[in-house]
C-alpha cells in the first residue's frame, strides 16, 4: 500500500479520525506532565531564578513556529508536484497554528526578556527573525483568504511559500548580520539549556527532561490540530462540491 493513498480525502478522514483520540489524549497528558514537572519540580536556575521556567513554553513554541513553516513548504511542494488536494489543504490548515506558535514564542520571549534584559523588546536577531516570520505567516494566510477559487489559491500560496522560504532564510542571515546581538550570551545560554552543552550541565539536564516532554507534547498537539483542521477544510470543500453538483443538476 502506497503512502499516497492517504492523499485521498476520504481515506485521510477515516484514518485521521481513528488517530485523533489517541493524539489528543497523549499530547494532553504529555503537556500537563511536562509543564507541571517543569514548573513545580525543577530547581530555579542559579542565575535566572524562576524566570527560566518559561522555556517550557518558549522553546517548544519557537521550534514549532519554524517547523510548521517547513511542513507547509513540504506540503506545498507535494501539491505542486503531485497535485493532491489534501496536501494543499494541510498547508492551509497549518498556517494559523504556525502564527499562534510564533506569537507564543514572541510573547513568552518578551516576558522572559523583561527581567533578564530589563526590556520587553530587544532587536535581538532571534526575536527579530521571529517577527519577520510572523509577517510571512500573515501574508501567506491573507493570500489564501483573498482568492475564491480553491485550486488557484492553492497554486499561488504554494509558490508564495516556496519563494517566501528562500527570503525567510535570507532574512535570518540578514538580521544576524544587521545586529550581531548584544544579547548573544543569553541566546547561547538558551541554546545551551536546550542541548545540555551548557557549562552547568547538571542543572541543564534537570531542565532538559521536562523540556523534551513538552516538545513532544507540542508536536503531537500540532499533529492533532492539523489533522482536525485539515478535516474541516476537506469537509468545507466537500460541501462546496456537493452544492455545485446540486446547482448543476437543478439547472440541467
Amino acid at each position: 500500500m502506497s503512502f499516497w493513498e492517504y492523499a485521498n480525502p476520504k481515506k485521510f478522514l477515516t484514518t485521521t479520525e481513528k488517530a485523533m483520540p489517541f493524539l489528543w489524549v497523549t499530547s494532553g497528558v504529555l503537556l500537563v506532565t511536562g509543564l507541571v514537572w517543569g514548573f513545580f519540580f525543577t530547581p530555579d536556575d542559579y542565575r535566572q531564578g524562576s524566570t527560566v521556567k518559561i522555556i517550557y513554553l518558549h522553546v517548544p513554541a519557537a521550534l514549532m513556529a519554524i517547523n510548521i513553516w517547513f511542513m507547509m513548504l513540504v506540503t506545498s511542494l507535494v501539491w505542486i508536484v503531485r497535485r493532491h488536494h489534501v496536501s494543499a489543504l494541510a498547508a492551509r490548515a497549518a498556517a494559523p497554528i504556525g502564527v499562534v506558535m510564533t506569537v507564543i514564542a514572541l510573547v513568552t520571549g518578551a516576558i522572559w526578556g523583561q527581567p533578564m534584559w530589563g526590556t520587553w523588546w530587544e532587536w535581538d536577531p532571534r526575536l527579530t527573525s521571529f517577527l519577520v516570520l510572523f509577517l510571512f505567516y500573515l501574508g501567506y494566510m491573507a493570500l489564501w483568504e483573498a482568492i475564491d477559487n480553491p485550486d488557484t489559491a492553492a497554486d499561488l500560496t504554494a509558490i508564495l511559500c516556496l519563494v517566501g522560504s528562500v527570503f525567510a532564510v535570507l532574512s535570518r542571515y540578514a538580521v544576524n548580520f544587521w545586529n550581531q546581538g548584544l544579547h548573544q550570551g543569553a541566546s547561547i545560554m538558551r541554546a545551551g539549556a536546550v542541548t545540555g552543552t551548557d557549562t552547568e550541565e547538571k542543572v541543564s539536564n534537570i531542565f532538559f527532561a521536562p523540556l523534551m516532554v513538552c516538545i513532544v507534547g507540542f508536536v503531537l498537539l500540532f499533529i492533532a490540530l492539523v489533522f482536525y483542521r485539515t478535516g474541516t477544510e476537506i469537509r468545507a470543500r466537500r460541501i462546496k462540491a456537493l452544492l455545485v453538483r446540486e446547482r448543476v443538476e437543478g439547472a440541467g
Partner: peptide, 17 residues
C-alpha cells in the same frame, strides 16, 4: 493592500543589506 503585505516581508533582506 494585500500586495504590500506580501511584498514588504520579501523586501526585508534587501533593505537590511
Amino acid at each position: 493592500l494585500l500586495l504590500s503585505l506580501l511584498v514588504l516581508p520579501l523586501y526585508v533582506p534587501t533593505l537590511i543589506f
